[in-house]
């Protein structure tokens, strides 16, 4: 009964640098179901933010999408012109960018910023209709109607994040990409904002791709988890299964490095450093940091395969049943 709303196939984003092209997103494929929240985690430089930007057609030069498909409800967005993408963005697929709270315009009222995107899509409203629409949007994200007449500096971080959310849902998109929507917020506010995001998503029946590096936040919020490493998707699993029995060694180390309040243990990070995309190790990009590396890992990059039903991982350890 599940229905795929967004199908990403073999997506590649390349950046041209003075030392040659870099694959920031490297042959990534996955499906997003209708009404699903999918998390994408990874270290800085893993390509998660670039992937999000690619999905809304906002990759800037020197970067570009060099291959693959982004099928939204059957329509491939990857080949759209800038002009065509503009019509799709916000109305069908919307982005809450990283640091959205700092992306608000300091000199215009919140009301105008919410209406800006709507007008840009050629939707004409009377003054009255616009007021009602803004009020309803603010209410939906848990803000008082007075906020419409305020400026960004009068709002707290959590409130600004809610405004960004109101803008993202203003045209009822099918897919919302939320890139670290709570990274600068206190834990209590963070929880509230995430609860609102979930409520809004359920009301709209939208799907969400939540990008971040906080595995704890993912555990609390998402249905499925995708793990990115050096531009590739290395694991994709339902969240509970991923937490209890991660398939890829990188996922396991990420989960183990997370401090909890359940019993004290010595904190251990993942050894080594994130790889440089210009100079990727041969074979599996994770092999220099992996505790289970064997010969094959240094030779060939493992493909993402369905290792157990509904669970995908890219690791040579999981290839031959032993």
């Amino acid at each position: 009964m599940s229905e795929v709303i967004l199908a990403i196939r073999d997506l590649q984003v390349q950046y041209d640098t003075s030392r040659g092209p870099v694959n920031a997103v490297n042959h990534v494929s996955f499906d997003l179901q209708k009404g699903e929240i999918l998390g994408l985690v990874g270290e800085s430089g893993s390509g998660k933010t670039t992937l999000g930007m690619a999905l809304v057609g906002l990759i800037q030069k020197p970067g570009r999408v060099v291959g693959g498909e982004i099928r939204l409800d059957g329509r491939n967005l990857a080949g759209l012109s800038r002009h065509e993408y503009k019509a799709v963005r916000l109305s069908e697929i919307a982005l809450m960018p990283q640091g959205a709270m700092n992306s608000l315009n300091p000199v215009t009222r919140i009301r105008e910023q919410i209406l800006d995107g709507i007008r840009d899509h050629g939707i004409n409203m009377t003054q009255k209709e616009a007021d009602v629409h803004v009020e309803r949007l603010l209410e939906r994200v848990g803000l008082r109607p007075e906020v419409a007449n305020m400026h960004a500096h009068e709002l707290s971080g959590g409130m600004k994040q809610r405004v960004a959310m109101a803008i993202a849902i203003s045209l009822q998109p099918k897919v919302i990409i939320a890139d670290e929507p709570t990274s600068a917020l206190d834990v209590v506010v963070q929880k509230r904002v995430m609860e609102t995001l979930k409520d809004v998503q359920e009301e709209l029946g939208a799907s969400i791709i939540l990008i971040g590096h906080d595995m704890g936040l993912m555990a609390q919020t998402v249905d499925r988890l995708g793990v990115m490493y050096a531009g590739r998707l290395v694991e994709l699993s339902p969240i509970q299964e991923a937490l209890i029995k991660p398939q890829h060694p990188y996922t396991r180390l990420l989960i183990e490095s997370l401090p909890t309040t359940k019993g004290k243990k010595r904190l251990r990070g993942i050894p080594g450093l994130a790889p440089q995309l210009l100079n990727l190790p041969r074979g599996c990009a994770f092999h220099p940091r992996c505790p289970h590396t064997f010969d094959h890992c240094t030779q060939e990059n493992p493909a993402l395969r369905e290792v157990i039903t509904q669970r995908w991982a890219a690791c040579h350890l999981l290839e031959e049943p032993s």
Binding site: V187, Q190, Q240, K262
Partner: peptide, 24 residues
């Protein structure tokens, strides 16, 4: 208690539940 309940933990048995403390 509010702080504790708000920590996002990656442990399946410590899932967030909605609490009744007033927001801001």
């Amino acid at each position: 208690q509010l702080l504790m309940n708000s920590i996002p933990q990656a442990i399946p048995e410590r899932m967030w539940h909605r609490d009744d403390a007033a927001p801001a």
